[in-house]
Design a binder for these strands. Structure first.
Lengths: 173, 173
DNA sequence: TATTGTTATACTCTATAACTATA
DNA sequence: TATAGTTATAGAGTATAACAATA
């Protein structure tokens, strides 16, 4: 399948929103609103649901650039860290080396990055964005920044900042 | 592969934590700390990283119960909503019907749930937890609640509550 | 005609083992 | 002996198409 047909996976039936307290156990069948209150107290559940809902929008908006979430992260990391190695990307993004190979190969084939000889380690390669890669990454970054506003429209600017701060504390602990 | 070997997927190299501002572009190779500052401003990135880090712990702790995250959500939803249908679960958890079939079948085969005739719709089935299912779900729920404390140990109780609240606002919008 | 549950299937994502070249 | 990049491959996770039974 071609790289452009990336975002055909959108499907966003909203979650049940009620925290119903009423027990409907008198009959053998639950007929009213669902009780999802307990699941909604769980950080793993909420973080996963939020991530998936943001990523769904991301997939749509990034489809013109042919970048999926991890592709975007990799390209952005290379743009912001010229000469970075594959191994450094793997550590920073928690990707396994075999799974990065294809992405790097694809970005290279598209002419977005270059692999140069590493100056001090002949096993490694220094990764750099090409001129075209820099242009694409800048456009994609602008799109991502705009998207940030859209997916958090239920939040104030302060709330969004707080949310990002708390999320980082969770995964950086 | 058996259902008990679920949590063999743990690998947690911590993310780079520095928000370095210094541009190291003078040489062709980046040697110092990586600059991940921009990615760490993005809600999708942070939510995904946080979700994955919580889920990694979840997989470990739930391995004794043979429950992966979605299995746990499904079993919990049935326990809290006796008589719920597959279709209702799909809507509540944003799962596609074909992907739920195997989970329901597995929970049924393990004797954790029962499928009864739906009282008003002969196409549907009312799902109920068995006595064993109720016991397992209660233990798993206790484990999940305990886990909540552990994965959020970098946060105060207030911060955790705020975080969950803001995450729900994101995916319930 | 639409919906529930289901089968078959394909694609993507994520993991391990093992290799080579270099350190 | 250990590490960087790679290949091959296996297993989850997630998607679509299409069907029978029922609404």
């Amino acid at each position: 399948m071609s790289e452009t047909s990336v975002a055909n996976t959108l499907r966003r039936p909203r979650a049940a929103r009620q925290h119903s307290e009423a027990a409907a156990e008198s009959t053998s069948t639950h007929v009213g609103e669902l009780d999802t209150a307990y699941l909604e107290t769980l950080l793993g559940y909420n973080a996963r649901r939020a991530a998936l809902s943001v990523i769904a929008v991301f997939l749509q908006r990034m489809e013109p650039y042919g970048l999926r979430p991890v592709d975007f992260s990799v390209l952005t990391l290379i743009a912001h860290n010229p000469g970075i190695t594959s191994r450094q990307i793997c550590t920073a993004l928690d990707i396994l080396p075999p799974n990065l190979v294809g992405m790097i190969k694809s970005l290279d084939k598209r002419g977005l990055i270059e692999r140069r000889a590493h100056p001090t380690d002949r096993r490694a390669q220094g990764l750099h964005v090409s001129a075209a890669g820099k242009r694409l990454q800048r456009e994609a970054e602008t799109t991502a920044t705009q998207l940030e506003q859209d997916v958090s429209k239920a939040l104030t600017a302060d709330e969004l900042q707080t949310l990002n701060h708390l999320l980082r504390k969770v995964y950086q602990s």
